[in-house]
Protein backbone atom coordinates (compact mmCIF):
# COMPACT_ATOMS: atom_id res chain seq x y z
CA UNK A 1 0.00 0.00 0.00
CA UNK A 2 2.76 2.31 0.97
CA UNK A 3 4.47 1.82 -2.41
CA UNK A 4 1.22 2.55 -4.23
CA UNK A 5 0.93 5.88 -2.50
CA UNK A 6 4.49 6.66 -3.41
CA UNK A 7 3.85 5.80 -7.05
CA UNK A 8 0.80 8.01 -7.18
CA UNK A 9 2.63 10.92 -5.66
CA UNK A 10 5.56 10.39 -7.99
CA UNK A 11 3.17 10.50 -10.95
CA UNK A 12 1.59 13.66 -9.66
CA UNK A 13 5.01 15.21 -9.37
CA UNK A 14 5.81 14.52 -13.02
CA UNK A 15 2.57 16.01 -14.34
CA UNK A 16 3.65 19.64 -14.29
CA UNK A 17 6.87 18.64 -16.00
CA UNK A 18 4.94 16.94 -18.80
CA UNK A 19 2.88 20.06 -19.31
CA UNK A 20 6.08 22.06 -19.41
CA UNK A 21 7.58 19.74 -22.01
CA UNK A 22 4.68 20.24 -24.41
CA UNK A 23 5.01 23.98 -24.08
CA UNK A 24 8.67 23.67 -24.87
CA UNK A 25 8.03 22.17 -28.32
CA UNK A 26 9.97 25.07 -29.74
CA UNK A 27 13.17 23.21 -28.86
CA UNK A 28 15.27 22.73 -31.97
CA UNK A 29 15.97 19.22 -33.28
CA UNK A 30 19.58 19.61 -32.17
CA UNK A 31 18.48 20.48 -28.63
CA UNK A 32 16.14 17.50 -28.54
CA UNK A 33 18.92 15.26 -29.79
CA UNK A 34 21.24 16.59 -27.10
CA UNK A 35 18.63 15.97 -24.44
CA UNK A 36 18.17 12.33 -25.47
CA UNK A 37 21.91 11.90 -25.88
CA UNK A 38 22.57 13.25 -22.40
CA UNK A 39 20.10 10.85 -20.87
CA UNK A 40 21.51 8.01 -22.95
CA UNK A 41 25.10 8.82 -21.92
CA UNK A 42 24.19 8.37 -18.30
CA UNK A 43 23.26 4.72 -18.90
CA UNK A 44 25.52 3.74 -21.81
CA UNK A 45 28.42 1.44 -21.07
CA UNK A 46 26.68 0.09 -17.96
CA UNK A 47 26.63 -3.38 -19.47
CA UNK A 48 30.43 -3.42 -19.66
CA UNK A 49 30.84 -2.88 -15.94
CA UNK A 50 28.20 -5.46 -15.09
CA UNK A 51 29.47 -8.54 -13.32
CA UNK A 52 26.34 -10.52 -12.63
CA UNK A 53 23.53 -11.58 -14.93
CA UNK A 54 21.11 -9.40 -13.06
CA UNK A 55 23.42 -6.37 -13.45
CA UNK A 56 23.69 -7.10 -17.14
CA UNK A 57 19.96 -7.38 -17.50
CA UNK A 58 19.34 -4.14 -15.67
CA UNK A 59 21.99 -2.33 -17.72
CA UNK A 60 20.60 -3.62 -21.01
CA UNK A 61 17.02 -2.89 -20.04
CA UNK A 62 18.05 0.69 -19.32
CA UNK A 63 19.95 1.06 -22.56
CA UNK A 64 17.63 -0.68 -25.01
CA UNK A 65 14.73 1.84 -25.09
CA UNK A 66 17.10 4.58 -26.30
CA UNK A 67 17.33 2.96 -29.73
CA UNK A 68 13.65 3.71 -30.34
CA UNK A 69 14.02 7.22 -28.90
CA UNK A 70 16.78 8.04 -31.37
CA UNK A 71 14.82 6.51 -34.25
CA UNK A 72 11.80 8.63 -33.26
CA UNK A 73 13.94 11.76 -33.60
CA UNK A 74 15.24 10.71 -37.00
CA UNK A 75 11.70 10.03 -38.13
CA UNK A 76 10.48 13.40 -36.94
CA UNK A 77 13.30 15.46 -38.47
CA UNK A 78 14.42 13.66 -41.64
CA UNK A 79 16.02 16.78 -43.09
CA UNK A 80 17.98 17.82 -40.04
CA UNK A 81 21.62 16.81 -39.64
CA UNK A 82 20.69 15.10 -36.36
CA UNK A 83 18.65 12.48 -38.25
CA UNK A 84 21.62 10.44 -39.40
CA UNK A 85 23.41 10.92 -36.10
CA UNK A 86 20.34 9.61 -34.31
CA UNK A 87 20.06 6.59 -36.62
CA UNK A 88 23.72 5.85 -36.03
CA UNK A 89 23.14 5.90 -32.28
CA UNK A 90 20.17 3.56 -32.66
CA UNK A 91 22.36 1.14 -34.60
CA UNK A 92 25.05 1.39 -31.98
CA UNK A 93 22.64 0.72 -29.13
CA UNK A 94 21.14 -2.33 -30.80
CA UNK A 95 24.68 -3.58 -31.45
CA UNK A 96 25.67 -3.09 -27.79
CA UNK A 97 22.61 -4.79 -26.37
CA UNK A 98 22.94 -7.67 -28.85
CA UNK A 99 26.60 -8.17 -27.92
CA UNK A 100 25.81 -7.98 -24.22
CA UNK A 101 23.15 -10.65 -24.65
CA UNK A 102 25.46 -12.90 -26.63
CA UNK A 103 28.32 -12.37 -24.19
CA UNK A 104 26.11 -13.23 -21.26
CA UNK A 105 25.28 -16.43 -23.05
CA UNK A 106 28.88 -17.23 -23.95
CA UNK A 107 30.12 -16.57 -20.42
CA UNK A 108 27.67 -18.75 -18.55
CA UNK A 109 24.91 -19.96 -20.86
CA UNK A 110 22.63 -17.49 -19.27
CA UNK A 111 19.69 -16.01 -21.08
CA UNK A 112 20.05 -12.71 -19.27
CA UNK A 113 19.61 -10.31 -20.83
CA UNK A 114 17.25 -11.61 -23.47
CA UNK A 115 18.12 -9.00 -26.06
CA UNK A 116 16.17 -6.17 -27.49
CA UNK A 117 13.17 -7.23 -29.53
CA UNK A 118 11.71 -3.88 -30.47
CA UNK A 119 11.60 -2.91 -34.13
CA UNK A 120 14.34 -0.27 -34.02
CA UNK A 121 16.62 -2.05 -36.54
CA UNK A 122 13.77 -2.35 -39.07
CA UNK A 123 12.75 1.27 -38.56
CA UNK A 124 16.36 2.44 -38.77
CA UNK A 125 16.83 0.70 -42.10
CA UNK A 126 13.52 2.01 -43.47
CA UNK A 127 14.53 5.60 -42.60
CA UNK A 128 18.05 5.26 -43.97
CA UNK A 129 16.64 4.05 -47.26
CA UNK A 130 13.80 6.54 -47.35
CA UNK A 131 15.63 9.69 -46.31
CA UNK A 132 19.37 9.22 -46.59
CA UNK A 133 20.25 6.70 -49.26
CA UNK A 134 21.92 9.41 -51.35
CA UNK A 135 23.76 11.05 -48.43
CA UNK A 136 27.52 11.47 -48.35
CA UNK A 137 27.38 11.11 -44.55
CA UNK A 138 26.44 7.44 -44.38
CA UNK A 139 29.91 6.15 -43.46
CA UNK A 140 29.49 6.02 -39.67
CA UNK A 141 26.18 4.18 -39.75
CA UNK A 142 27.42 1.74 -42.39
CA UNK A 143 30.34 1.05 -40.07
CA UNK A 144 27.97 0.05 -37.30
CA UNK A 145 26.07 -2.35 -39.54
CA UNK A 146 29.27 -4.14 -40.55
CA UNK A 147 29.63 -6.38 -37.50
CA UNK A 148 25.99 -6.38 -36.48
CA UNK A 149 23.79 -9.44 -36.43
CA UNK A 150 20.46 -8.06 -37.52
CA UNK A 151 19.12 -9.36 -40.81
CA UNK A 152 17.57 -6.01 -41.69
CA UNK A 153 21.03 -4.64 -42.44
CA UNK A 154 21.87 -6.84 -45.42
CA UNK A 155 19.28 -5.42 -47.85
CA UNK A 156 20.05 -1.95 -46.51
CA UNK A 157 23.76 -2.23 -47.27
CA UNK A 158 22.97 -3.67 -50.70
CA UNK A 159 20.63 -0.80 -51.55
CA UNK A 160 23.12 1.83 -50.41
CA UNK A 161 25.77 0.13 -52.54
CA UNK A 162 23.41 0.18 -55.53
CA UNK A 163 22.10 3.71 -55.16
CA UNK A 164 24.52 5.96 -53.32
CA UNK A 165 26.22 8.41 -55.70
CA UNK A 166 29.35 8.92 -53.57
CA UNK A 167 32.24 6.66 -54.40
CA UNK A 168 33.73 6.68 -50.89
CA UNK A 169 30.39 5.71 -49.34
CA UNK A 170 29.98 2.89 -51.86
CA UNK A 171 33.52 1.69 -51.13
CA UNK A 172 32.85 1.49 -47.39
CA UNK A 173 29.50 -0.13 -48.02
CA UNK A 174 30.97 -2.72 -50.35
CA UNK A 175 33.46 -3.70 -47.63
CA UNK A 176 30.80 -3.59 -44.91
CA UNK A 177 28.46 -5.88 -46.85
CA UNK A 178 31.24 -8.35 -47.61
CA UNK A 179 32.34 -8.39 -43.96
CA UNK A 180 28.78 -8.61 -42.67
CA UNK A 181 28.12 -11.63 -44.88
CA UNK A 182 31.52 -13.13 -44.04
CA UNK A 183 30.66 -13.02 -40.35
CA UNK A 184 27.37 -14.74 -40.98
CA UNK A 185 29.07 -17.48 -42.98
CA UNK A 186 31.47 -18.05 -40.07
CA UNK A 187 28.52 -18.07 -37.71
CA UNK A 188 26.83 -20.76 -39.82
CA UNK A 189 29.96 -22.89 -39.87
CA UNK A 190 30.39 -22.56 -36.11
CA UNK A 191 26.79 -23.38 -35.39
CA UNK A 192 27.14 -26.83 -36.99
CA UNK A 193 26.80 -29.31 -34.20
CA UNK A 194 26.61 -26.57 -31.59
CA UNK A 195 22.97 -26.62 -30.71
CA UNK A 196 23.61 -24.54 -27.61
CA UNK A 197 24.68 -21.73 -29.94
CA UNK A 198 21.43 -22.16 -31.85
CA UNK A 199 19.60 -21.74 -28.57
CA UNK A 200 21.55 -18.57 -27.87
CA UNK A 201 20.59 -17.04 -31.22
CA UNK A 202 17.01 -18.09 -30.65
CA UNK A 203 16.91 -16.35 -27.28
CA UNK A 204 18.62 -13.19 -28.49
CA UNK A 205 17.19 -12.80 -32.00
CA UNK A 206 14.11 -15.00 -32.09
CA UNK A 207 13.50 -18.49 -33.31
CA UNK A 208 13.63 -17.70 -37.03
CA UNK A 209 17.05 -16.07 -37.04
CA UNK A 210 19.44 -18.98 -37.37
CA UNK A 211 17.07 -21.23 -39.38
CA UNK A 212 16.73 -18.42 -41.88
CA UNK A 213 20.50 -18.10 -42.27
CA UNK A 214 20.76 -21.87 -42.43
CA UNK A 215 18.46 -21.92 -45.43
CA UNK A 216 20.98 -19.84 -47.37
CA UNK A 217 23.25 -21.63 -49.82
CA UNK A 218 26.70 -21.42 -48.24
CA UNK A 219 28.60 -21.77 -51.52
CA UNK A 220 26.63 -18.96 -53.08
CA UNK A 221 27.18 -16.85 -50.00
CA UNK A 222 30.93 -17.49 -50.18
CA UNK A 223 30.99 -16.56 -53.88
CA UNK A 224 29.08 -13.37 -53.21
CA UNK A 225 31.51 -12.38 -50.47
CA UNK A 226 34.46 -13.01 -52.77
CA UNK A 227 32.94 -10.97 -55.58
CA UNK A 228 32.22 -8.07 -53.21
CA UNK A 229 35.86 -7.98 -52.11
CA UNK A 230 36.92 -8.21 -55.75
CA UNK A 231 34.70 -5.30 -56.61
CA UNK A 232 36.12 -3.37 -53.66
CA UNK A 233 39.68 -3.78 -54.93
CA UNK A 234 38.77 -2.92 -58.51
CA UNK A 235 36.38 -0.02 -58.04
CA UNK A 236 37.22 1.42 -54.65
CA UNK A 237 40.83 0.39 -54.07
CA UNK A 238 42.02 3.89 -53.16
CA UNK A 239 39.13 4.79 -50.83
CA UNK A 240 40.37 5.46 -47.29
CA UNK A 241 39.50 2.72 -44.84
CA UNK A 242 40.59 2.29 -41.23
CA UNK A 243 43.91 4.01 -41.45
CA UNK A 244 44.64 2.35 -44.79
CA UNK A 245 42.71 1.80 -47.98
CA UNK A 246 39.83 -0.39 -49.08
CA UNK A 247 42.20 -2.04 -51.55
CA UNK A 248 44.70 -3.16 -48.90
CA UNK A 249 42.08 -4.71 -46.64
CA UNK A 250 40.08 -6.26 -49.48
CA UNK A 251 43.24 -7.82 -50.92
CA UNK A 252 44.04 -9.45 -47.58
CA UNK A 253 40.51 -10.78 -47.38
CA UNK A 254 40.72 -12.12 -50.93
CA UNK A 255 44.05 -13.74 -50.14
CA UNK A 256 42.45 -15.55 -47.19
CA UNK A 257 39.47 -16.63 -49.28
CA UNK A 258 41.70 -17.95 -52.04
CA UNK A 259 44.55 -19.45 -50.05
CA UNK A 260 43.36 -20.13 -46.53
CA UNK A 261 40.09 -21.87 -47.36
CA UNK A 262 39.00 -25.48 -47.20
CA UNK A 263 40.48 -27.36 -50.15
CA UNK A 264 43.56 -25.13 -50.48
CA UNK A 265 47.08 -26.21 -49.67
CA UNK A 266 48.02 -24.61 -46.38
CA UNK A 267 50.85 -22.09 -46.71
CA UNK A 268 53.80 -23.16 -44.64
CA UNK A 269 54.56 -21.47 -41.35
CA UNK A 270 58.21 -21.17 -40.52
CA UNK A 271 59.25 -19.86 -37.14
CA UNK A 272 60.19 -20.81 -33.64
CA UNK A 273 58.22 -22.44 -30.88
CA UNK A 274 57.92 -21.42 -27.24
CA UNK A 275 61.38 -22.86 -26.50
CA UNK A 276 62.98 -21.05 -29.40
CA UNK A 277 63.32 -24.31 -31.31
CA UNK A 278 62.76 -23.93 -35.06
CA UNK A 279 59.32 -25.14 -36.05
CA UNK A 280 57.74 -25.55 -39.47
CA UNK A 281 54.18 -26.49 -40.22
CA UNK A 282 55.53 -28.65 -43.04
CA UNK A 283 57.50 -30.71 -40.47
CA UNK A 284 54.18 -32.39 -39.87
CA UNK A 285 53.49 -33.39 -43.47
CA UNK A 286 52.17 -36.93 -43.48
CA UNK A 287 50.18 -36.32 -40.34
CA UNK A 288 46.85 -34.76 -39.64
CA UNK A 289 47.38 -31.39 -37.95
CA UNK A 290 45.02 -29.30 -35.88
CA UNK A 291 46.32 -25.76 -36.18
CA UNK A 292 45.01 -23.50 -33.46
CA UNK A 293 45.38 -19.73 -33.50
CA UNK A 294 45.02 -18.66 -29.93
CA UNK A 295 45.52 -15.76 -27.62
CA UNK A 296 45.46 -15.47 -23.89
CA UNK A 297 41.78 -14.78 -23.57
Amino acid sequence: MRSLIQTVSALAATMPMLALASQADVKTPAQQYSAVFKEYSSVSGGQRGATTDLDRKVAVDRLAPFAAKFVDLAEKYPNDPIALKALRQACQIVGSTDSAAINAWEINQSNFPAGNRDDSPGRTVALVLRDHVLSDQLGPIIDRMRYAYRMDYEPCLQEVLDKNPHRDVRGLTCMALAQYLGDKLQMLRLSDGREELATCYEIVFGKDYLPEWRRRDRDKLAKRIESLFERATKEYGDVKFRGGTVGEVAKRELYAIRNLSVGKVAPDIVGKDQDGTPLKLSDYRGQVVLLYFWSEF
Partner: peptide, 16 residues
Protein backbone atom coordinates in the same frame (compact mmCIF):
# COMPACT_ATOMS: atom_id res chain seq x y z
CA UNK B 1 41.43 -15.81 -32.37
CA UNK B 2 40.35 -18.38 -31.65
CA UNK B 3 40.60 -19.99 -35.07
CA UNK B 4 41.01 -23.65 -35.92
CA UNK B 5 42.27 -25.29 -39.09
CA UNK B 6 42.49 -29.00 -39.77
CA UNK B 7 45.19 -29.82 -42.28
CA UNK B 8 45.47 -33.29 -43.79
CA UNK B 9 48.56 -35.43 -44.44
CA UNK B 10 49.29 -33.80 -47.79
CA UNK B 11 48.92 -30.29 -46.43
CA UNK B 12 45.42 -29.47 -47.65
CA UNK B 13 43.12 -27.44 -45.42
CA UNK B 14 40.14 -29.69 -44.75
CA UNK B 15 38.27 -27.74 -42.11
CA UNK B 16 38.32 -24.17 -40.95
Amino acid sequence: TPAFFIIDHVGTIRHK
